[in-house]
Design a protein around this nucleic acid. Sequence first.
DNA 1: AAACTCTTTGCAAATGAGTTGCATTTATTG
DNA 2: CAATAAATGCAACTCATTTGCAAAGAGTTT
Lengths: 165, 165
Amino acid sequence: MVPGMGHCDIHATLERAGLSKTSQRVAVLTALVHAETPLSARDILERVSGEGRINRVTVYRILASFKAGGIIRELATDHGENFFEMACRHNPAHPHFYCRSCRSLACLPSAGNQERWIREYREADEAIETVAIHFTGLCRRCRSENAGHPVRRLRGPRGDRRVSP
Amino acid sequence: MVPGMGHCDIHATLERAGLSKTSQRVAVLTALVHAETPLSARDILERVSGEGRINRVTVYRILASFKAGGIIRELATDHGENFFEMACRHNPAHPHFYCRSCRSLACLPSAGNQERWIREYREADEAIETVAIHFTGLCRRCRSENAGHPVRRLRGPRGDRRVSP
DNA sequence: AAACTCTTTGCAAATGAGTTGCATTTATTG
DNA sequence: CAATAAATGCAACTCATTTGCAAAGAGTTT
């Protein structure tokens, strides 16, 4: 996340998307604007439970409306848990890193030429609406906590492993 | 998929990964090697049901072992359904296009500089194990069948839509 | 070939993210 | 302020994927 993104105006953002300013929407959008990393629906539910207490289903519906309104981006992971982040001008599209052990999602800086590269693909087929660049592996924390989070491995193959046929 | 990938030797591939050649593994690998596009677990189950009839759970376990052995890649989608494709030398990593309407996944050709670009990111953090580049939108078929697959839209906003705050 | 051991498979049941139907509440408009 | 449309909450559901456990296979040793 880009520092300073928290400055996005909640009410103006909702208005621009044509969404009425219900307390639930304000709460969800506030959580997203202040998030350091992309949030899952569960993350949002937790962060919002302090105040008015929102229903789980409502969170999903609000996220769907935000996505349709172009306010947020949705990020898919291998494990079926999706994450959400602001899609405002302070937070342009960038790659993400997903830890397959702790299942956290972190933002990566954009490569210098990434924007242009993405644009080329967009031009090749105007039906493209979103582009996601997704790295996976083990995050630093899980790498050091190796004992607790052992890397899953099958029985060691006879010859080499990971060789293309 | 790359034409000619079907030439991958099933038995040699399993052997190299240190996996015993059970009839179920051979069937799943055969389906993947001959697939024109990435397959979901359900796709594989369907294609394999002709012969020996494999249990759903077994397919998932076989796919997990193939992935751990570096034989296949797993591709995540927004809707929690994952796809799988060969990771052999005939099928180097490439971007994919996911249709949000019919939920099909298609392969895209690699951009000329993609390999280098990916390598740069890998070097930046050696923990990175996989890289996925994922486009979404509406496929050609769903675009023309617009009547049957209407694009979901919220009530039209007063001002402009999709404007960043 | 029987006995052992380890791996793989099948079945049933669970998990967990996300969705749908419907009644109720809240916003917005006239 | 009543009328109308949108948003929320609740319960129950779908569906991909996972887990526990017992039965079936494979490979090895005696």
